[in-house]
């Protein structure tokens, strides 16, 4: 079975820290950090590299700040 690996890049300046992506991520890759952006929001941050590119976070993000990358794992 081909395995996929994903990676997400969050535009932290546009993130409003609503936490919806944290809730839907099955791998718990995203977390609200302790840092704030220039608007004063605690933005979402990536804490692990277990992303499987399931697209859940990009589906629910209201501000479309997440870009998702997906690549086939070479085994």
């Amino acid at each position: 079975m081909a395995k996929f690996k994903g990676a997400i890049v969050i535009d932290i300046e546009k993130c409003k820290g609503c936490g919806l992506c944290v809730e839907v991520c099955p791998q718990k890759v995203i977390e609200l950090g302790n840092n704030v952006n220039t608007k004063g929001y605690f933005y979402a941050d990536v804490i692990k590299e277990d992303c499987t590119a399931c697209e859940n976070c990009v589906m629910v993000c209201p501000d479309t700040v997440i870009t998702l990358y997906k690549a086939k794992l070479e085994v």
Partner: peptide, 14 residues
């Protein structure tokens, strides 16, 4: 992640 983050691997963007 560095090797995955390339334009040809984008599956979702704004």
């Amino acid at each position: 992640w560095k090797e995955i983050i390339k334009d040809e691997n984008i599956v979702f963007k704004k």
